[in-house]
């Protein structure tokens, strides 16, 4: 496994993603969700909203990295708030 060159940061990143996925799956089995229309232009399921949230977060981080010197905790905080809003009202 040494060729994969794990670091603590990336390991915790993937653990968090895996944990989110596991929670979502568990939640989905307990309380199956139906498609609904929120503030997004298309009707979405819970999983769709999670995916949209994660993908847009990635882009926000890239924008911050590429075009400002600000600390990465700012976009991180922004994205967590955005993800929660999206899951709740999206």
């Amino acid at each position: 496994m040494s060729w994969m060159a794990w670091t603590p940061v990336t390991a915790s990143f993937f653990s968090i993603i895996a944990a989110i996925l596991a929670c979502m799956t568990f939640y989905e089995i307990k309380v199956p969700c139906t498609e609904r229309k929120g503030f997004l232009p298309i009707p979405t399921t819970r999983g769709d909203r999670l995916f949209i949230g994660l993908l847009s977060s990635a882009y926000v981080h890239l924008l911050f990295v590429g075009f400002s010197e600000a600390s990465l905790f700012i976009p991180l905080a922004l994205c967590v708030v955005w993800l929660l809003c999206l899951l709740r009202w999206g």
């Binding site: 060729w3 994969m4 060159a5 794990w6 670091t7 990336t10 990143f13 993937f14």
Partner: peptide, 10 residues
């Protein structure tokens, strides 16, 4: 993909 992520920060 995980490997790529690992490489990208080192």
């Amino acid at each position: 993909l995980m490997t790529v992520v690992n490489y990208s920060v080192q």
